[in-house]
Structures are given as C-alpha cells and as structure tokens.
Amino acid sequence: MSQAQRSQSKQSTQRRQAAAVRSVLLFVCALIAGLCSAVPAPSAVSAPAAAASGAIRGRVDVRRTATAVDRRPGVADLGSPLTRPIPDLRRSVVYLESAPRGAFEPNEGGRAVMDQRLETFVPHVLAITVGTTVDFPNSDKFYHNVFSLSKTRPFDLGRYATGSSKSVRFDRPGIVRVFCDIHSHMNAFILVFSHPFFALTDADGRYRIENVPPGTYGVIAWNEGNASESKPVSVPDGGLAEQDFTVR
C-alpha cells in the first residue's frame, strides 16, 4: 500500500470515528434532553419508559354495612359524652397483590398525618409505603394515647396534650390497627405497602392506580379489615385497565 493510500485510509477511519463520536454525543444530548424534559420527548430514545406505564381504575362497592365503633355504654359517666363525627367507613384501599419487579427498591420515606380530632382519627384509613413516617397530632383539648399492638408495628406514644404531635416510622409492610388507650371507641387503620401500587377510593368508591408497568397482576380491594378476592387485571402497554370490586 502506497503512502497516499495509507493516508486516505487513515482519513476515512478518522471520519468514521468522528461520525461515531457525533452520533454518541447526539444520543447523549437527546437522552439528557429527554430526561430533563417534563413532557416525554418525541424521540424513540426516551419514549418507552414513560409511555409503557398504564393505570388501573374502577369502583369498589361495599355491600357490608360497616358501622363506626360505638362508645361503650358510659354507665359510670356523670354526664353525656362528647358528640363526635362518624368516620367514613366506605373508603377502601385497592392494591396490587404482586408488584412488578423493581417496585421494592428502598423508599426514602415520606410523611403522612393522622390527626386526632373530636375523639376520632382523621383519616380513618391511611395507605402508605414502607419507610413512611406518620405524624399523630392531637387537636383535641384533652389527652390522647395512640397505640397499636399489631405485629407489623407495635407502638405506644403515651399521653400528650393538644397541639403536640408524635411520630412513628413504619418499616414493615402489613396492616396496623391504631387505637387510643383513653378513648376505646377511637380506632383507625394504617396499611403499609412495600410498593407504590395502591389507591384509596373516593367518596363514591372510585379509585385509580397510576404508573403501573404493563403486565398482569392480582388486584385486591380492602375495606375495614375485609378483603375481596384477588382479581387478575392486565395492564396494556401505556393503557388503562378497568376493574370493579365488591367487598362484602
């Protein structure tokens, strides 16, 4: 091979390398642009992850007539008890029985609040992920003593006054029944999940679980300690699946 031919070949190789570098740079720039943009970029690079997520929605019909825990007959009391609001017992929690791979990554841990107001826990049902810290402020003028004997997270916050708050971090999945040691009619549920695929129903019993990767899952509806049978739900690629439940 002559020197000219060797020189041409070298220049050609350099051009290919430069083109390859430009391609890589373009790809990286596109990737960065796609990741930084709130709206998924219309490029083929960033689209799959966002577009693949689907959702599950539907309605939970609570057939059982759940009644709020009443006060014990206050036979030894010298006067009438405080009038308190009736907690909304028709709120249900719908959740994936088996979560997609990658859903169990450690959670940084958010915060949630369960207030104590007029001898009632508000909200009555709280659904959180593992690692969440729940604050229990006391908004009443008298003492409360929040506690739970559940195996998932036993705790006893002791007595504390109005304006004070104490917290509990939940590090294991499960159902935690919460009570007040002073007011036996006060009770609430905290459902702790190891994945984020759950939703609380609204006042009409409707729910929507967002960002569910495509696949087939078992889905369960839960209300006041009663769970429905698991129903298989197929979430299409970037689509919406519908499933209604009845809890008896």
Binding site: T67, A68, V69, D70, R71, R72, P73, H185
Partner: peptide
C-alpha cells in the same frame, strides 16, 4: 372486640 351496636347505634351493649 367492640361494643355491639344495633338499631343504627341507638342501642349499644358492652
């Protein structure tokens, strides 16, 4: 585990 309420909570037993 809780008081028994009947008649819409008008009658409670403990």
């Amino acid at each position: 585990a809780e008081p028994i309420a009947v008649a819409g909570g008008r009658l409670t037993f403990g």
